[in-house]
Design a protein around this nucleic acid. Structure first.
Ligand SMILES: [Mn+2]
Ligand SMILES: [Mn+2]
Ligand SMILES: [Zn+2]
Ligand SMILES: [Zn+2]
Lengths: 114, 114
DNA sequence: TTCTTATTGCAATTAGGTTGCAATAAGAAA
DNA sequence: TTTCTTATTGCAACCTAATTGCAATAAGAA
């Protein structure tokens, strides 16, 4: 599982992971390893637009602080999701205190757009 | 159900709706009416940070075009979600075509912050 | 009324995700 | 090596959101 995330730069849904490791390990084990790796700061998770859970490798996270508050981009054609190493400004709202923003940009990736 | 959304300015999760109309109508009916109202442009839906489905009244939608591409704000204390009538700039990405952004701002609402 | 379509209730099912518990694997201590 | 202890895994069962099939009822048009 460690190797799986080490070799890829894009995110992967839990559904796909369970399918990928089917026959090799139980789906409960997949969920548990993912939880462990997230707690250790190796990967981070987020919800896709359809509500499914996705995971991706962390680039600058430790088990004490997750630097995973970055936007993600999903291609509406092939479904691929990738982490964006950019930081967008958090808008200020009157009478409300905003401290986090969850952003999912949707469009077409390089492959699907050409 | 129409009245329910007409009287409120915040979003409501489907779970809460099913609970609210329990005894009055079947949960399947709740889901079906919501689908219908969304198709008619009366309400719009989105996923919360936990993956649950939420609905809110549309202010400028028709059955032909949904103007529901606005950010939402969720209070991490009371869980309330509201539509934000602001539009944030869609960032440009190299080699990718971005046409939609799903944004959920998280923080504390006026009531919970004071 | 009669025919036709739209809506609803209920049970069953699907799908993502979790929990309990026993079995096994891995490590440390002796 | 042997023994004790902890961590990991498999499997079945369970939970909850959401969907589907189908019969029953309601609503409208003819
Ligand atoms: Mn990421
Ligand atoms: Mn909204
Ligand atoms: Zn693509
Ligand atoms: Zn609040």
């Amino acid at each position: 599982m460690q190797r799986y995330f080490g070799d890829r730069s894009t995110a992967v849904s839990v559904v796909d992971l369970v399918e990928h490791f089917r026959g090799e390990m139980n789906k409960v084990t997949v969920y548990r390893i993912l939880s462990r790796m997230e707690a250790e700061g190796i990967i981070h998770s987020f919800s896709g637009s359809d509500g499914l859970k996705w995971y991706a490798a962390c680039k600058q996270c430790t088990n004490h602080s997750h630097y995973d508050h970055h936007p993600h981009f999903q291609c509406k054609v092939c479904g691929m999701i990738e982490c964006l190493e950019i930081s967008l400004p958090i808008p200020k709202l009157k009478n409300r205190k905003v401290d986090t923003e969850i952003i999912l940009l949707i469009g077409e990736c390089e492959t699907c757009a050409s």
